[in-house]
């Protein structure tokens, strides 16, 4: 094409060498974290194994939020609602009916998360008109708040005290005790969900989500039914949150109203904003680092640590909207490529 046809700054692509180096980073970070997670527990004290288990479980919840906000552009303040409801339902199943099978309880948790998300989606997403960001945010926040208040006042589910003394999960005849065994169960589920989400977000459907995040108004004119897409993504995120809620309840041996409410939901939002939205690994990093910072800060500043942490989070959100992962990988890599084996005959520049 003659150069004179091109008006404006047309050649802004980064140098190929820099881009190629950046492209290799994300899989490297993912594999590095996985390797670390696999080999670390034998070298850790019991406290840190429990800590790492909690991080793995909360990472599932953070991934569910990353999926809805980072990929589908739905600002949900209700992820804790899905995980908490799943926690309560599986806890009741275990305490009232004596069910302890890990397969049954995880499956039930996933289904509860899915159906609660479907009910919420029917109210706030799948209306006749496309809902606004504020409407969805406030709708999910309100739902989370209302259900927390209901749980606090309902004696059947333990009221303020929640449901304590949950039995251990079982795998056949084996009990899954807190410690390395529960850690590897949580890690296995996390890796499974992560790989599934990677497949989902890197598929051609992921391309539609990426398009929706950038120009929602535009891609409706291609023929995509955006509300259906959002509904599907929201329900998938609910399912993941449900799994997280079930694991959390049985790891802690307790489920309480706090696990349903806006505080927990907001914490998940902060995890993901801190780590980096729309990258999956950013959600896992966010949970790990925020919880580590919280622990060490609380050791050093007994009363003032939430303020220090809050300022740190605020600085990240204000000055690095792409989160910590944005310091390591380029925007191009964060968005990635789509479609299995989708060779276009050219290497990305």
């Amino acid at each position: 094409m003659p150069e004179e046809l091109i008006s404006g700054p047309a050649r802004l692509a980064p140098p190929a060498r820099v881009a190629a180096r950046a492209r290799a980073l994300l899989p490297g970070i993912e594999l590095g974290l996985l390797a670390l997670a696999l080999v670390l527990p034998p070298f850790l004290e019991d406290f840190w194994v429990l800590f790492a288990t909690r991080v793995a479980i909360l990472s599932l919840l953070a991934l569910s939020f990353d999926l809805v906000w980072g990929y589908a552009g739905i600002m949900s303040f209700g992820q804790a609602l899905f995980s908490g409801m799943a926690g309560y339902c599986t806890a009741l199943l275990a305490t009232q009916l004596g069910v302890t099978s890990v397969f049954v309880l995880l499956g039930t948790g996933a289904l509860v998360g899915l159906f609660v998300a479907l009910a919420v989606a029917a109210l706030v997403i799948l209306g006749k008109r496309a809902p606004s960001l504020v409407f969805v945010s406030l709708g999910t926040l309100t739902g989370s708040y209302v259900v927390e208040r209901l749980a606090r006042g309902w004696s059947f589910v333990g009221g303020q005290n929640g449901i304590p003394s949950l039995p251990r999960l079982t795998l056949g005849r084996f009990e899954i005790a807190e410690g390395p065994m529960f850690y590897y169960l949580a890690l296995f589920v996390l890796v499974l969900v992560y790989v599934g989400l990677r497949f989902f977000t890197r598929s051609q459907l992921g391309l539609v989500l990426a398009g929706m995040r950038q120009q929602e108004g535009r891609i409706a004119f291609f023929g995509y039914r955006l509300q259906h897409l959002k509904g599907v993504t929201f329900c998938l995120a609910g399912l993941i949150a449900g799994i997280s809620g079930c694991l959390y309840a049985f790891h802690e041996g307790y489920v309480g109203p706090g696990q349903l409410g806006p505080v927990q939901s907001t914490q998940v939002v902060l995890y993901v904003l801190f780590g980096g939205v729309g990258t999956l690994v950013g959600a896992v990093l966010g949970v790990s680092l925020v919880d580590l910072f919280s622990y060490f800060l609380s050791q050093r500043f007994e009363t003032a640590w939430p303020i220090v942490l809050g300022v740190l989070l605020l600085l990240i959100v204000m000055y690095r909207p792409s989160g910590l992962i944005g310091l390591l990988v380029s925007d191009r890599e964060r968005i990635g490529s789509f479609g299995r084996g989708g060779k276009t005959g050219e290497k990305p520049r």
Binding site: Q204, L207, F222, H228
Partner: peptide, 23 residues
């Protein structure tokens, strides 16, 4: 990907998930 996004709009969600039409 901009053009692919427009071209694949008629595909079902399942086909998009399995990235069946990219080739």
């Amino acid at each position: 990907d901009n053009v692919l996004l427009a071209l694949q709009a008629g595909d079902s969600l399942f086909d998009l998930l399995l990235s069946r039409s990219r080739r």
